[in-house]
């Protein structure tokens, strides 16, 4: 086995990258990302084999006739999607590496079918019938005071035990 070495950290810093990118576009004030010293922690209340998993995505539904001009035009309200509707979830206006890959395979960013197979195998109890769309917001307040509480309410209605969240 070849010994590999690096002189720089390999992980991309998206905080640094996006700051430099928008500065180059003439935006003078850098975005202030959320930062915390601690994090909450809730142990599992029951085995995963008996738990219902809720899937959360940053993908969204576009209204009919939608015309994109600026990021502010995007729908930024939380929503739910059933398995028949997930094919209509849109990702094109989110910031991801469009020159490197695509999102035509749902399970590459929202593992609905993989989770379904794991439920069939008994690894988890079940997958919630509704998928929860938690939009990426510029406003952290909007996420914490409006969107996340809405998703929590839906999860409680659906008896979700644990959540798997996948930002694009």
């Amino acid at each position: 086995m070849t010994e590999r070495r690096r002189t720089h950290r390999s992980h991309v810093s998206y905080i640094d990258k996006s700051r430099d990118y928008y500065a180059a576009q003439g935006y003078e004030r850098a975005y202030g990302w959320a930062t915390n010293d601690d994090a909450p922690f809730t142990p599992l209340a029951k085995p995963l084999a008996e738990s219902r998993v809720g899937l959360v995505t940053t993908a969204y539904f576009l209204p009919d006739g939608f015309v994109y001009r600026v990021p502010g035009d995007l729908p930024r309200t939380p929503a739910t999607a059933t398995a028949d509707q997930v094919g209509n979830l849109d990702t094109q206006y989110l910031s991801w590496a469009k020159d490197e890959t695509h999102t035509d395979d749902l399970d590459s960013f929202l593992p609905l079918h993989r989770l379904g197979e794991l439920a069939d195998d008994g690894r988890i109890g079940s997958v919630s019938e509704r998928i929860y769309c938690l939009p990426t917001q510029f406003s952290q307040r909007q996420t914490q005071k409006r969107d996340a509480p809405q998703v929590l309410e839906w999860m409680e209605e659906d008896d979700v035990d644990v959540a798997l969240l996948v930002p694009l």
Partner: peptide
């Protein structure tokens, strides 16, 4: 999304995030 995970977790739903923007999440 990370703020959403924190919110759900604090409300009693255990969460896991799968993602590629390590610095933003951490």
């Amino acid at each position: 999304m990370s703020l959403g995970a924190r919110f759900l977790e604090a409300a009693g739903i255990p969460t896991v995030i799968v993602g590629s923007a390590r610095d933003i999440v951490e």
